[in-house]
Measured scan of single mutants.
Amino acid sequence: KNAAKIVNEALNQGITLFVSDNKLKYKTNRDSIPSELLEEWKQHKQELIDFLTQLES
C-alpha cells in the first residue's frame, strides 16, 4: 500500500493524519483506532511523514 491510499482509508474512517514536529499524528472523533490501522501506520511511518509533509508544503 502506498501513503496516499493509507491516508485516504484513514479519512474514510473519520481519521485525519498529519505531521507535527516531524512526528505522525492523528485527529479523530472516534473512541478508538483499530489496531490494524495503527500497525499499518507504524509500518509505513516514514513514507506517511514524507507524503504528508510534501502535501503541506
Rank of each mutant, 00 (worst) to 15 (best):
D50I: 10
N2G: 11
L17Y: 01
A4E: 14
L17A: 01
N12D: 11
N8S: 14
E40P: 02
S57N: 13
N29H: 11
Q46P: 04
L48N: 00
L11E: 06
T53Y: 06
Q46S: 08
L38I: 13
E47V: 07
L38W: 07
Q54N: 11
K27Q: 08
G14H: 05
L37F: 08
N8M: 15
V7C: 05
Q46W: 07
E39I: 08
A3P: 12
E9V: 05
K23T: 14
K5T: 15
V7P: 01
N29W: 08
Q43D: 08
D21Q: 07
D21P: 00
P34V: 03
S57F: 06
R30P: 02
S32A: 09
E40M: 13
A3S: 05
K25Q: 14
K27F: 10
S35T: 10
S57Q: 13
K23I: 12
Q54K: 14
V19G: 01
L37S: 04
Q43S: 10
N8K: 15
E9D: 11
Y26C: 07
K27Y: 10
N2W: 09
W41S: 02
K42F: 13
Q54V: 08
S57M: 11
G14Y: 04
F51G: 00
N29G: 07
E47D: 09
L11Y: 10
Q46G: 06
L24A: 00
A3T: 06
E56T: 12
I49D: 00
D31Y: 04
S20N: 08
E40F: 08
T28R: 02
S35P: 13
Q54E: 11
N8G: 09
L17E: 01
H44Q: 05
L11D: 04
L48Y: 00
K25P: 00
L11T: 06
R30S: 07
N2K: 10
E39G: 05
L17R: 01
E40Q: 11
T28Q: 03
S20E: 15
K23L: 12
I49A: 02
L38H: 05
L55F: 12
H44N: 10
N29D: 14
I49E: 03
A3Q: 02
K5H: 13
S35L: 14
S35F: 12
N29K: 10
K45M: 15
F18M: 06
F51D: 00
A3D: 01
R30K: 10
E40S: 08
N29A: 11
E56S: 14
E47T: 06
V7T: 03
P34F: 03
D50A: 12
K5C: 13
P34S: 06
L24T: 01
L37K: 03
E9G: 04
P34W: 03
I6G: 00
Q54D: 09
T28P: 10
L17D: 01
S57D: 15
D31N: 11
S35G: 11
P34M: 03
L11A: 12
K25D: 08
D31M: 10
H44T: 03
D21W: 04
D50R: 08
K42W: 12
L38A: 05
L52Q: 00
L38V: 07
A4H: 07
D50L: 13
D31C: 09
K27T: 11
N12H: 12
K1T: 11
K1Y: 10
L11F: 10
K5V: 13
K45Y: 15
S20H: 14
D21G: 11
D21Y: 05
F51K: 01
G14Q: 04
E40C: 15
A10C: 04
F18K: 03
R30E: 05
R30F: 05
K1C: 13
A4G: 07
H44Y: 14
N8R: 15
Q54F: 09
L55W: 10
N29T: 14
E56H: 13
V7K: 02
D50F: 10
K42P: 01
F51V: 02
E39F: 07
E47C: 07
K5E: 14
Q43R: 13
L52V: 02
A4M: 09
K25C: 15
L52E: 00
T16W: 13
S20V: 15
K42M: 15
L55P: 09
T53D: 05
E47I: 09
T53K: 12
A4K: 10
K45D: 11
L11R: 13
N12I: 14
T28Y: 04
L17H: 01
W41T: 02
Y26G: 02
K42T: 12
L11P: 00
Q54W: 11
N8P: 01
S20C: 15
T53F: 06
I33N: 01
S57W: 04
L17P: 01
D50C: 07
E36N: 09
I6K: 01
I15E: 01
Q43H: 10
S20M: 09
E47N: 05
L24R: 00
E56M: 13
K23W: 04
F18S: 06
L11S: 08
E39C: 07
R30M: 14
G14K: 04
L11K: 09
E39R: 11
S32Y: 13
V19E: 02
N22Y: 06
N12V: 13
I15G: 01
V19F: 05
R30A: 09
H44D: 02
K45E: 15
W41K: 00
V7G: 00
E39P: 02
Q13V: 07
A3R: 02
V19C: 05
K5G: 07
L48T: 01
K42G: 09
L52P: 00
Q46M: 07
Q43Y: 10
K25V: 10
Q13H: 14
E9Q: 08
S57E: 12
A10D: 01
E47Q: 09
I33E: 02
S32T: 13
K23C: 12
T53Q: 10
I6E: 00
N22Q: 07
S57T: 13
Q46I: 07
I15S: 01
A10V: 01
K42I: 15
T28W: 04
E39H: 07
L48K: 00
K25L: 14
L11Q: 08
S35C: 14
S20A: 12
D21M: 06
I49Y: 04
F51R: 01
H44W: 11
L37G: 01
I15W: 02
A10M: 03
T53S: 11
